[in-house]
Nucleic acid binder design. Sequence first.
DNA 1: CTAAATGCAAACCATTTGCAACGGA
DNA 2: TCCGTTGCAAATGGTTTGCATTTAG
Lengths: 162, 162
Amino acid sequence: MMREELEVFHRHLQQQKLKRTSQRDLILEVFLDIERHLSVEELYDLVKQKDSSVGFTTVYRTMHLLVEAGLARQVEFNDGRTRYEHEYKHDHHDHLICTECSALIEFYNPEIERLQEEIAKSFGFHVQSHSHRLFGTCNAFFANEGDFPPYCQKAKRQSSNQ
Amino acid sequence: MMREELEVFHRHLQQQKLKRTSQRDLILEVFLDIERHLSVEELYDLVKQKDSSVGFTTVYRTMHLLVEAGLARQVEFNDGRTRYEHEYKHDHHDHLICTECSALIEFYNPEIERLQEEIAKSFGFHVQSHSHRLFGTCNAFFANEGDFPPYCQKAKRQSSNQ
DNA sequence: CTAAATGCAAACCATTTGCAACGGA
DNA sequence: TCCGTTGCAAATGGTTTGCATTTAG
């Protein structure tokens, strides 16, 4: 059976009078298989493993298509490269980003979402999308005890070095 | 009398064993005089008007210094260039950004600020800074009536063309 | 006198674009 | 066939860096 996302993609291509190609299908498939925030370069490397003839540019162009089709969402973590996460039937969420270890935590708070809408409304503003990121350290509270939360990437690196 | 920010800057330079220069002072002065979100290029153009010998690179480097000194804050509006706003003794705020006319509205909501802290705490996370941006259209609700909110840049452009 | 700062040009680097060859519909 | 797509190489554009020269402390 076909992945729902693939159908959504093909429908989008048809509507836009664009063409279905093996490269596009492959890139979408690889993207969907990874539950992680991928940069174009990371995605390109993964795609190359399945078909080394696919070009860098095609991955860039396809990611734009996936965003337009509502299948991918761009996320900026201020490290100079755009990353993509799954969008289709994935609940919206925002991010906590550790400036020390690059750990990424997703959060969702309905009250904040509600307040956002309220604020926008008070300015006669219609929100299309938003980006809410909290930058900080995931281990600051634990530094004294040498105890790290499970998602801390630095702690993982340290323990794997022992 | 000397601007408070200038004192803060000089104290920072001294602490870091860096040097006070006429270029740095000028750039800070020009930056402080403008109550707007400036890109490095815009700031450079303004600085050039007062001293055409100042280099582009120096503006870039000085803005980094101002951020370190707590006098400027970086803001990304996803238009590919970093902008800076005043930080010193300016209340923290977040942004509504119009994707149609680039209008910029600042907002502050204590309840959202509180919830952010709460969320971070629940993850054992210590927030250093955050970026909360609402992207959308400032005129969408008014499109039918042809009535634009006062901050709409597009409306301003249209009326000045008449 | 010494280390830091400046301004220029060149380098960087993620992303985009021009273009000739290719391939869906 | 027609027109969108591909992959490469080259261009783009904001930002950074190398370096010889200048300057603050």
